[in-house]
Design a protein around this nucleic acid. Sequence first.
DNA 1: TATAATTATGATAATGATTATCATTATATA
DNA 2: TATATAATGATAATCATTATCATAATTATA
Lengths: 141, 141
Amino acid sequence: MDVINAKLRESSYRLTGQRKAVLNVMLENKGRHLSAEEVLWEARKISPNIGIATVYRTLEKLASLEVLYKSMFEGNKYRYELAEDEKHHHHHVLCLACGLISEVSGDLLHELESDLDEQGYKIIDHELKFYGYCPACNKKK
Amino acid sequence: MDVINAKLRESSYRLTGQRKAVLNVMLENKGRHLSAEEVLWEARKISPNIGIATVYRTLEKLASLEVLYKSMFEGNKYRYELAEDEKHHHHHVLCLACGLISEVSGDLLHELESDLDEQGYKIIDHELKFYGYCPACNKKK
DNA sequence: TATAATTATGATAATGATTATCATTATATA
DNA sequence: TATATAATGATAATCATTATCATAATTATA
Ligand SMILES: [Mn+2]
Ligand SMILES: [Mn+2]
Ligand SMILES: [Zn+2]
Ligand SMILES: [Zn+2]
């Protein structure tokens, strides 16, 4: 939280009531992947008049500061999650039955990346998503 | 092409002029990743009155038959490519400078998948995207 | 063949997430 | 306090995709 505050100040972003609200929502949902709309409903419990535009703006700012990660899940909707610097670069498993999003921290992709390096590519980032059934849904069948 | 025809017949889909046009476009662009809009323009050279709805419908059908692969690239737009069964499950490298989409056929992800298997997951599919600079753009800097 | 049933098409409206606009308000600075 | 700057919320615009629906083409049936 102090780190986040520092990042905001560095970029001369004011920590307004609305931004505090959005931040609180994300902090209280550590580990969850929320859509802008979901953040809006939660944030309105703290800052009742906050508008969707401000939510989008704040989420974008926080993502650009790497306080949040932004990722597309349903194919037409972004979701945001708190970036915990420990598992900096993690990946996702999506359950095709219940929609559960779980995480994979292992990262054996560096071998592929170094292959690409040798071919002349400069790889900056990668994103991996597994699709399948979570343990609970897998048992039910 | 015979295979595709067979697949269509199996599903009792008529191979209409419009569908032939869309198919031709995809066949003549083997290896490229086209948006629905791009397919529309090309298809109109063959079937001038074809509408965007028919293009979407046809692309969806062909994707469900696994004749095409469908994948999101720009974050808000799907692209379709001919599914060549050789490199069945390939992955993508996106150049952040010129937008070039190249492909990675290596697949070291099975280790991650088997980890998940042991945890009770049933993995059906996965999608990996690298973001970075292609060799050409990488040199220019 | 004539007719009925099915499937496909194209124009256009609707949808839904995101972005842009703009007048108003809050905050910081001189 | 006056003034510049940043932030906000309502709402319109955008853009890809999907739904609707009347019409046309194809196939099955009598
Ligand atoms: Mn995550
Ligand atoms: Mn490809
Ligand atoms: Zn599940
Ligand atoms: Zn490039």
